[in-house]
């Protein structure tokens, strides 16, 4: 009896230690995020001004704004979405709704897993040789966006497939039993129900792409460029601007570096929060 009481006490002590340690790890994550964001705001907030957000750089990049980089990142992200969303969503639909169990499907899945595992600088190299040189696009928005699209595709495919799989079979059955074709069932019933998941997953993937430096380093960006007039022009971009200002600037201008970092983090953050809010709104409307 006594021995077992001691064992219970011991178990309880171990339990509370485990709870404390795991709790600390969770707290560390929150602290880290708060610290990073807080520090960027602290260092960068002073640089933010109307001029900073709307004007091109001046005086050998030591003054002025970062508007061409903001616009360039928006442009790159838009075209990345334009290339990767249709292909990614369609591939996700194929995997979730049509793919038979077999070698071909296994190969497709393996390819997607591998695609997600390739380091982003390797995509940059790939984009350089295929889009920039072979296709002759040169360093351009389109070559950069195509490269970023390769990086984003696996995220979009996977989130589409998962969102579609979460739609109950019952709904598909109901639609088929009403005489609807497979395609109509997907388009009218399954896709709308899965839309929140698809959109959030895609936005997370795209915001990740918006912050990437390595893939656009050799495919799209320039140290200084005016706003490109076509997608075949080279562009500035926030992550690259940040990189170049932090490491290779002729004259260091830390206020521009931190200001740029703040704009990038804030932009991506706002989009992510908006996506998460929209999804939870949709979720509360749709429940099964």
């Amino acid at each position: 009896m006594k021995a077992s009481t001691a064992r219970v006490k011991r178990a309880r002590a171990i339990e509370s230690v485990a709870k404390t340690i795991t709790g600390l790890a969770a707290f560390l994550v929150v602290g880290l995020v708060l610290f990073v964001i807080g520090y960027i705001v602290y260092r960068g907030a002073g640089s933010i001004s109307w001029e900073f957000l709307t004007q091109p750089p001046r005086k050998n990049m030591t003054a002025g704004g970062i508007w061409p980089a903001i616009w360039g990142t928006m442009l790159l992200t838009f075209w990345t979405a334009a290339f990767s969303l249709p292909i990614g969503v369609m591939a996700g639909i194929y995997l979730a709704e049509y793919a038979p169990r077999g070698t071909f499907t296994r190969v497709v899945r393996l390819s997607i897993a591998n695609m997600a595992g390739v380091p982003s600088i390797v995509y940059g190299l790939f984009g350089l040789s295929l889009f920039v040189l072979t296709f002759g696009f040169g360093r351009s928005v389109i070559a950069g966006a195509l490269t970023l699209a390769c990086l984003t595709l696996p995220v979009i495919i996977t989130s589409t497939e998962e969102a579609l799989r979460q739609v109950p079979k019952d709904l598909r059955q109901a639609s088929l039993a009403l005489g609807a074709s497979r395609l109509r069932t997907i388009v009218r019933v399954v896709l709308p129900a899965a839309a929140p998941g698809i959109v959030t997953g895609s936005i997370l993937g795209l915001s990740r792409a918006a912050g990437e430096t390595a893939p656009i380093l050799v495919t799209a960006v320039a140290f200084y460029a005016p706003i490109p007039s076509t997608v075949f022009g080279e562009t500035m971009a926030l992550p690259y601007h940040l990189y170049i200002m932090a490491t290779q600037a002729v004259k260091p201008a830390p206020h521009i570096v931190w200001g740029t970092a703040l704009v990038l983090v804030a932009g991506v953050g706002i989009i992510n929060v908006a996506a998460a809010t929209w999804r939870s709104r949709q979720r509360s409307k749709i429940r099964w």
């Binding site: 109950p168 019952d170 059955q173 109901a174 639609s175 088929l176 039993a177 009403l178 005489g179 409307k285």
Partner: peptide, 19 residues
């Protein structure tokens, strides 16, 4: 089957209205 299912409707075990 599309025509057949117009003539022969089905109601399932669990209520499954569309969203």
């Amino acid at each position: 089957p599309v025509e057949l299912r117009m003539r022969v409707g089905q109601v399932f075990q669990k209520p499954n209205p569309f969203p």
